[in-house]
Lab assay of single mutants.
Amino acid sequence: MAAGGDHGSPDSYRSPLASRYASPEMCFVFSDRYKFRTWRQLWLWLAEAEQTLGLPITDEQIQEMKSNLENIDFKMAAEEEKRLRHDVMAHVHTFGHCCPKAAGIIHLGATSCYVGDNTDLIILRNALDLLLPKLARVISRLADFAKERASLPTLGFTHFQPAQLTTVGKRCCLWIQDLCMDLQNLKRVRDDLRFRGVKGTTGTQASFLQLFEGDDHKVEQLDKMVTEKAGFKRAFIITGQTYTRKVDIEVLSVLASLGASVHKICTDIRLLANLKEMEEPFEKQQIGSSAMPYKRNPMRSERCCSLARHLMTLVMDPLQTASVQWFERTLDDSANRRICLAEAFLTADTILNTLQNISEGLVVYPKVIERRIRQELPFMATENIIMAMVKAGGSRQDCHEKIRVLSQQAASVVKQEGGDNDLIERIQVDAYFSPIHSQLDHLLDPSSFTGRASQQVQRFLEEEVYPLLKPYESVMKVKAELCL
């Protein structure tokens, strides 16, 4: 049975990233139509530049190519590739079939990587351009969430054990800070992308030097003109047959890092959902379990974690691919890159769409948070109580021993009897502590235990987050809708 299948058929496997999760716009960027249309555009740009620099290419040939950029006979191309065992030459023939007058000058002087690699770089750039505003929107939604809850005390956790208090907004800023680093890295790697350009079979530009009869300047002009037509500021000066596969490492490393950030955020949300302090959106008709109707599973956060793990592992592909590119190139890269580049971007696209949807509907339960604080705060307040007693004339050592005994009794009630923490009640009825009984409410005010959390939130948002989001103001209103 021949390899390949009808990918629109229910009898043929289709990647869930495309069929179930990723956005239509990201799927289109990695589609065959987008790819092969870009090949034709690159052939047109090459012909236009070659004509401008004096090669015998007519206006009629150029116009014929322009008129057929979208006229792609995919069936013919597939048949040609089956016959020739070469995808680029299959599309040269297919393009030439609908451009008979231009057929002889299509791909003039070029090698397969002229269309293959340059198209990949265009796709990487455009895919990054799709991700950047999506990530900015996630940051914006979380920034709104953090600002609104900047002063809401909550129990902090280290080692997932109760620690000092923080605020809900401050905790959210930990998430935002990681995503801001990801946004900066995505922008950097996007701006650092260079075009492969017009380089020939081993990167020496020998074929173009021959076409222009040894004119170095025209060869350099050709490279520059096509690079500018493709919208790049610069091209690699040095290439082998391909652009260095280190570029793929750079791009997928940034995406993998984004995956790590999203995994951490969504894990926190899942843990908070278990504590009943916070939940992701839950639709009115949504079913959490087929057997347990009360369940409210954090399905979206779980999906993000599941896909983020996949995204983090994909960076190993370009690392290994770059390491086995012998001399000017081997074909070890080809099949692998067809999979890992598309999957990385479709996965990143999915987790950003999902995280935006989550961040637009996060639900906080202040009463649950308050109750958990009441359970733990008495123990945390013991040092403040000791200091207040010393100020009232008591002995630190005597007070410490009193607190120690009462704390152990209260802990026994919590752990052995399943009761509430009654340390404060014990202190309130103990005559030894009568000098500070009137101060206990103040000493137990949760806001006095959150330090500068709310001020940190305000400063972080104003100095770091809002300036970073400013270039994306025009796209901030787009909502994230999930079908599944």
Rank of each mutant, 00 (worst) to 15 (best):
residue 3 A to S: 07
residue 3 A to F: 14
residue 3 A to E: 00
residue 4 G to Q: 05
residue 5 G to A: 10
residue 5 G to S: 12
residue 9 S to R: 12
residue 10 P to W: 14
residue 10 P to S: 12
residue 12 S to D: 01
residue 15 S to P: 11
residue 21 Y to M: 10
residue 22 A to M: 07
residue 22 A to F: 06
residue 22 A to R: 10
residue 23 S to W: 08
residue 26 M to Y: 05
residue 28 F to K: 09
residue 30 F to I: 09
residue 34 Y to E: 05
residue 35 K to W: 10
residue 36 F to I: 15
residue 37 R to S: 06
residue 38 T to H: 10
residue 40 R to Q: 14
residue 41 Q to N: 07
residue 43 W to E: 04
residue 43 W to K: 10
residue 45 W to G: 10
residue 46 L to W: 05
residue 47 A to D: 06
residue 48 E to G: 10
residue 49 A to H: 08
residue 49 A to K: 07
residue 50 E to K: 01
residue 51 Q to D: 15
residue 53 L to H: 05
residue 54 G to M: 01
residue 56 P to C: 00
residue 60 E to Y: 14
residue 64 E to A: 04
residue 65 M to E: 00
residue 67 S to F: 00
residue 71 N to I: 08
residue 71 N to Q: 13
residue 74 F to K: 15
residue 75 K to N: 06
residue 80 E to M: 01
residue 82 K to T: 09
residue 84 L to F: 05
residue 84 L to H: 09
residue 84 L to G: 07
residue 85 R to E: 00
residue 86 H to Q: 06
residue 86 H to C: 04
residue 88 V to K: 02
residue 90 A to G: 09
residue 91 H to K: 07
residue 91 H to Y: 05
residue 91 H to T: 00
residue 91 H to P: 10
residue 93 H to C: 11
residue 93 H to G: 11
residue 94 T to I: 08
residue 95 F to M: 12
residue 98 C to L: 08
residue 98 C to N: 01
residue 99 C to Q: 12
residue 101 K to M: 11
residue 102 A to Q: 05
residue 104 G to D: 10
residue 104 G to N: 04
residue 106 I to M: 03
residue 108 L to C: 10
residue 112 S to D: 07
residue 113 C to T: 00
residue 116 G to A: 05
residue 116 G to M: 11
residue 117 D to G: 06
residue 122 I to C: 05
residue 122 I to A: 04
residue 124 L to I: 10
residue 125 R to V: 03
residue 127 A to I: 06
residue 128 L to N: 11
residue 130 L to T: 14
residue 132 L to C: 12
residue 133 P to T: 12
residue 133 P to S: 04
residue 135 L to S: 12
residue 137 R to A: 11
residue 137 R to V: 11
residue 138 V to C: 13
residue 140 S to A: 02
residue 140 S to W: 00
residue 140 S to P: 04
residue 140 S to C: 08
residue 142 L to A: 03
residue 143 A to G: 11
residue 143 A to V: 07
residue 144 D to N: 06
residue 144 D to A: 13
residue 146 A to W: 11
residue 150 A to E: 06
residue 151 S to Q: 11
residue 151 S to D: 02
residue 152 L to F: 00
residue 158 T to R: 09
residue 161 Q to M: 01
residue 162 P to K: 08
residue 162 P to E: 09
residue 166 T to D: 01
residue 169 G to M: 02
residue 169 G to S: 07
residue 173 C to L: 12
residue 175 W to T: 04
residue 175 W to F: 00
residue 175 W to N: 13
residue 177 Q to I: 06
residue 177 Q to L: 01
residue 179 L to Y: 10
residue 180 C to L: 07
residue 180 C to N: 05
residue 182 D to T: 08
residue 183 L to Y: 12
residue 186 L to I: 10
residue 187 K to V: 08
residue 187 K to D: 04
residue 189 V to I: 08
residue 189 V to G: 06
residue 190 R to P: 04
residue 194 R to D: 08
residue 196 R to H: 15
residue 198 V to R: 05
residue 198 V to M: 13
residue 201 T to Y: 14
residue 202 T to N: 01
residue 204 T to P: 09
residue 205 Q to D: 07
residue 206 A to N: 03
residue 208 F to N: 01
residue 209 L to V: 03
residue 211 L to Q: 00
residue 212 F to Q: 03
residue 214 G to T: 06
residue 217 H to R: 02
residue 219 V to W: 07
residue 220 E to Y: 15
residue 221 Q to N: 13
residue 222 L to I: 12
residue 223 D to I: 03
residue 223 D to A: 08
residue 223 D to W: 15
residue 224 K to Q: 00
residue 224 K to Y: 14
residue 226 V to E: 00
residue 227 T to L: 04
residue 229 K to T: 07
residue 229 K to M: 15
residue 234 R to Y: 12
residue 234 R to T: 10
residue 234 R to L: 02
residue 234 R to D: 04
residue 235 A to K: 09
residue 239 T to W: 10
residue 239 T to R: 06
residue 239 T to L: 14
residue 241 Q to P: 03
residue 242 T to D: 00
residue 243 Y to D: 05
residue 244 T to G: 08
residue 247 V to D: 06
residue 247 V to W: 11
residue 247 V to I: 07
residue 253 S to M: 15
residue 256 A to Y: 00
residue 258 L to N: 11
residue 259 G to Y: 14
residue 260 A to L: 02
residue 265 I to E: 06
residue 271 L to H: 02
residue 273 A to K: 06
residue 275 L to I: 04
residue 277 E to S: 10
residue 277 E to K: 02
residue 280 E to L: 00
residue 280 E to S: 14
residue 284 K to R: 06
residue 284 K to E: 08
residue 286 Q to L: 08
residue 287 I to S: 01
residue 287 I to C: 09
residue 288 G to F: 04
residue 290 S to I: 02
residue 290 S to W: 11
residue 291 A to N: 12
residue 294 Y to R: 13
residue 295 K to Y: 07
residue 298 P to I: 15
residue 298 P to D: 15
residue 298 P to K: 14
residue 301 S to K: 04
residue 301 S to D: 02
residue 301 S to F: 10
residue 302 E to N: 00
residue 303 R to M: 07
residue 304 C to R: 07
residue 305 C to G: 14
residue 306 S to I: 08
residue 314 L to S: 06
residue 315 V to L: 03
residue 317 D to I: 02
residue 327 F to G: 09
residue 327 F to Y: 07
residue 329 R to E: 04
residue 329 R to Q: 12
residue 331 L to H: 07
residue 333 D to V: 03
residue 333 D to I: 15
residue 333 D to E: 05
residue 333 D to L: 11
residue 334 S to K: 09
residue 335 A to I: 03
residue 336 N to L: 05
residue 343 E to H: 11
residue 344 A to W: 05
residue 344 A to T: 01
residue 347 T to F: 15
residue 348 A to F: 01
residue 350 T to E: 08
residue 350 T to G: 11
residue 352 L to N: 00
residue 353 N to R: 11
residue 361 G to T: 11
residue 365 Y to C: 10
residue 365 Y to M: 06
residue 366 P to E: 15
residue 367 K to L: 13
residue 379 F to S: 10
residue 384 N to S: 13
residue 387 M to D: 00
residue 388 A to R: 05
residue 388 A to M: 03
residue 388 A to L: 11
residue 388 A to E: 10
residue 390 V to F: 15
residue 391 K to W: 10
residue 393 G to T: 05
residue 393 G to K: 11
residue 394 G to W: 14
residue 395 S to P: 03
residue 396 R to G: 09
residue 398 D to W: 06
residue 399 C to H: 00
residue 400 H to Q: 03
residue 402 K to L: 12
residue 403 I to F: 15
residue 406 L to V: 02
residue 407 S to R: 00
residue 409 Q to R: 03
residue 411 A to K: 10
residue 412 S to Y: 15
residue 412 S to A: 09
residue 412 S to I: 12
residue 416 Q to G: 14
residue 417 E to R: 13
residue 419 G to M: 00
residue 419 G to F: 15
residue 421 N to Q: 08
residue 422 D to A: 14
residue 424 I to R: 08
residue 424 I to C: 10
residue 427 I to E: 15
residue 435 P to L: 09
residue 435 P to S: 12
residue 436 I to R: 09
residue 441 D to C: 00
residue 442 H to A: 00
residue 443 L to A: 13
residue 444 L to A: 11
residue 448 S to P: 10
residue 448 S to N: 08
residue 448 S to G: 13
residue 451 G to A: 13
residue 452 R to G: 07
residue 457 V to G: 14
residue 457 V to Q: 13
residue 459 R to A: 05
residue 459 R to L: 11
residue 462 E to V: 15
residue 462 E to Y: 08
residue 465 V to L: 00
residue 467 P to Y: 06
residue 468 L to K: 12
residue 472 Y to V: 06
residue 472 Y to H: 09
residue 476 M to T: 09
residue 477 K to R: 12
residue 480 A to L: 08
residue 482 L to E: 03
residue 482 L to P: 05
residue 484 L to S: 09
residue 484 L to A: 13
